[in-house]
């Protein structure tokens, strides 16, 4: 009995010591283990897969909340790239995007492409929605555009197409070794969602350059980094491995969650 109590005492002591050492070592104790690609990090990322699966199970095709005009109290805050400087983009901008074409490519029966005027003449949808940045802030604005689902229907995705990759003009990183261009991706549920529009209008004006002119995709049930600006190509693919670092987007490659709905 005495031995048993001693063992328990020792056990409690060791437990307390362990807890204290973690606290004293500071929270940098976990830094190395949490880098992208480390086994612990990969295990913890299963939590995000669970969130994605759970939300897809219950959210289905529910619409994001739409607000009333009176709730637009300010302009849409520009964030990330606000003034791309690639030669291709500057040339289009100089011509007021008259030569712009939005392409749907990849695993489709027919590749299609549309000019800005053609997009503006397609069925339009306006929605006043809340833009939620992953950093924590939100901003309400009115977006006008044509649903991406219409373009996908025209292109007819092949059965093996699982994701849509969104290629953008903006050089979000400008390094000595060259530019890094923004890209994003989503599943086809988000791509075909009725509120997923190719927006060319913002708060009843032409979409400004700072907010992604000429076309920005809205995926309203996801965070801001899933709303690619300066969009030029929607490529349907079976897997995301060959783009960037293979995690499905510019920010995903830097450690952000791919689903982006939480």
């Amino acid at each position: 009995m005495a031995n048993l109590i001693l063992n328990r005492r020792r056990l409690l002591g060791l437990g307390a010591l362990g807890a204290a050492s973690v606290t004293l070592a500071g929270c940098d104790a976990f830094d190395g283990m949490l880098k992208v690609g480390q086994p612990l990090r990969s295990a913890l990322e299963k939590g995000n897969e669970l969130s994605y699966g759970a939300q897809r199970l219950i959210v289905q095709n529910a619409l994001a909340r739409e607000y009333s005009t009176s709730e637009i109290r300010q302009g849409q805050r520009p964030n990330g790239s606000t003034d791309p400087s690639t030669a291709e983009y500057l040339a289009l901008k100089a011509n007021n995007f008259a030569d712009y074409r939005l392409k749907v490519t990849g695993l489709v029966e027919t590749e299609v492409s549309y000019s800005l005027n053609e997009l503006r003449n397609m069925p339009a949808r306006s929605q006043i929605t809340r833009h939620d940045c992953v950093e924590g802030w939100s901003c309400i604005a009115k977006w006008t555009g044509t649903p991406l689902s219409g373009l996908l229907a025209a292109a007819v995705p092949k059965p093996e197409a699982k994701f849509a990759v969104y290629h953008c003009y903006d050089n979000i990183e400008r390094g000595l070794s060259g530019d890094i261009l923004y890209y994003e991706s989503s599943d086809l549920i988000d791509a075909r969602h009725p509120q997923s529009i190719l927006a060319y209008g913002l708060n009843d004006e032409v979409l400004p350059v700072a907010n992604g002119a000429p076309v920005r995709l809205r995926i309203e049930r996801a965070l801001g980094y899933k709303q690619p600006k300066y969009l030029h190509t929607v490529e349907l693919v079976a897997d995301l491995a060959k783009f960037g670092n293979g995690r499905g987007g510019y920010w995903e490659d830097r450690g952000y969650d791919w689903y982006g709905g939480i």
Binding site: V59, R221, I262
Partner: peptide
């Protein structure tokens, strides 16, 4: 705070 949850549980 989840935009996805906002859609299913506004």
């Amino acid at each position: 705070m989840s935009p996805g949850m906002n859609a299913v549980a506004p």
